[in-house]
Simulated scan of single mutants.
Amino acid sequence: MQFRLLAVIMLFFMVSCGAKKSVAPDVEIPHLRYSKLVKEYKANSFKEADFNTVKIDAKMSYKIGNSSQKLGLNFRISKGEKIWISGDFLGIPVVKMLIEKDSVHYYNKFDKTYFDGSFDFIKQLIGVDVSYAVLEKLFVGDLILNIEKNRFKMDISDRSYFLYDSGNKNYYIEAAIYPLTFKTKSQVIEQVFGESLFATYYKNYQNVDGFLFPKELSIKGKNNGKESIITIKYNDVKFNEDLSFPYKVPKDCDKPVILKPKENSESNE
């Protein structure tokens, strides 16, 4: 069931009482200055929210090629420090991951494999450079683009504020922001010369303690001709709880994953 691949893909990935905030078809989206959009987005971002930890109970469905499956997921996030993910199949924990600022750790009880090392492992799977900060932003719904530091091209498209980077020679990068709520709608990273694609789509948000947090997240990936589509639904979200991040590789997981030799390639930075 390709649990090892799934375990890594899960990394990239994912309104009170379930009600959705959306833009009515007849509502005109106001034109904003770039600086005004940045200010509104920043004010509504998780980075600026007064929360230090997040605990999430979620469900995930995925399709990788002709293979599909459903898993239960539990996330624990300490803002700016670490992300802990536990995946279960039929109620039995099968995969566990601990993502820290400069390292990735995981084990898979099904194929008895484990990994302790750098983010190069993820890059070899999806073809895109990532960091801890990028992964945390994806899970909590913040933009991976630094729109405060860099001024991106800005348009109104598909009833949202559309931002894109036209100066990167290696990757095409774009993002969309919902009007009214100023929350992330989508993010896309695609190789200009290659087949790698990574995209996230935030279908709706939920009100948690007065803060709009993702409710449903879809992830689309493509690397070396293989496509994957993942949908994650956050069922229960709690902020500022005292969390632990237990991680210990079981003795029977004795097959280390060895990275392939690095190839000379240009960075997307």
Rank of each mutant, 00 (worst) to 15 (best):
D102C: 06
I173H: 07
C17Y: 07
K47S: 12
E40L: 14
V188M: 12
A19M: 11
K169S: 13
I156M: 01
K70E: 15
V15K: 11
D155M: 13
K262D: 15
A58F: 03
A43C: 05
P214G: 03
H31T: 12
I173N: 12
V208K: 00
Y34R: 07
Y164N: 09
K36W: 11
Y172T: 06
K20P: 08
F211T: 00
F110E: 12
E40P: 07
G18C: 01
K63D: 08
A7I: 00
P246N: 00
V104Y: 01
S196N: 15
I173Y: 09
V128Q: 04
L71Y: 05
S22Y: 14
D57R: 10
S218L: 13
G72L: 04
A199L: 03
K215S: 01
S35T: 13
E195Y: 05
D50Q: 05
I156P: 05
K21F: 11
P256L: 05
S244Q: 12
V15I: 11
A49E: 05
G65C: 00
M14K: 10
L11W: 02
S103H: 03
Y106R: 03
L90E: 13
Y172I: 08
P214C: 02
K255W: 02
V249M: 01
F245V: 08
S218V: 13
L32K: 10
D209R: 04
F75P: 14
K59M: 11
F211Y: 01
K262L: 12
P246E: 01
M60P: 06
K63L: 12
V38Y: 03
L32H: 11
D102W: 04
S228A: 15
Y34N: 07
G221L: 14
I99R: 02
L197Y: 03
Y41H: 01
R4H: 10
T113K: 04
S196V: 06
A133W: 09
N52D: 07
Y62P: 10
K55H: 12
N52T: 11
A133K: 13
A176M: 11
T113Q: 02
A43Y: 02
K101P: 11
I147T: 07
K70M: 13
S68M: 08
S16M: 08
K39T: 15
I9P: 04
S157D: 13
I64R: 08
T113S: 13
K82N: 11
F12A: 11
D236K: 15
F51V: 14
D142Y: 01
T200L: 08
L212Q: 00
A43D: 07
L145M: 06
V249G: 01
E148P: 09
L98V: 01
Y172K: 09
L11I: 06
E48I: 10
D158I: 06
I230N: 03
P214A: 02
Q206H: 02
N74K: 14
Y106M: 14
P25N: 00
F3Q: 10
D88H: 01
K123G: 08
D252K: 04
V134A: 07
N170W: 05
L212A: 02
I258M: 12
D155Q: 14
Y201F: 15
L243V: 05
E81R: 04
S45I: 08
G210M: 04
E148A: 07
V188T: 13
F75T: 09
Y205T: 02
V27H: 02
K82A: 13
N224F: 08
G221I: 08
N264K: 05
A43T: 04
R159V: 10
K36A: 15
T184R: 00
K42D: 14
Y114E: 03
K226G: 06
M60E: 09
Y106F: 15
Y161P: 06
N170P: 06
K255G: 10
